[in-house]
Amino acid sequence: MMVQSSPENGSLREGIFSIPLHGPVAMTTVPEIRKVLLGAAKKRAVKEIRIDFSRVSKLDTSGVAMLVETWRGLARRGGALRLSGLSENAKRLIQLARLDQIFEIRDEAGSRIEYGS
């Protein structure tokens, strides 16, 4: 069974809070992950949050809603949210919710993915 993300997973270095998530990011797991992300988004020292989804098995709309909350918390202070390692399904879900325009999504090579409008 995959280990769920916990506050210990994240690391803060030079204003960048990096966190790899594991397993499903869905209704049952979002309440815990949200605490970690919103907690980090509130910290003054955090200028950017980078979330690695490469070991995430599923992302549902509760996960997307959580990302919106995190992004909002950061954007108020001029911070950024970067997502990497998203599966094709997760990318499609974010596109369907039309949020690919506000999240910064990176591919495996670390390049920013630009979506057509």
Binding site: V30, P31, R34, T61, S62, A65, M66, E69
Partner: peptide, 10 residues
């Protein structure tokens, strides 16, 4: 157990 805000955004 989702928060009201998460539910509102969903």
């Amino acid at each position: 157990r989702l928060s009201d805000e998460t539910i509102r955004i969903m």
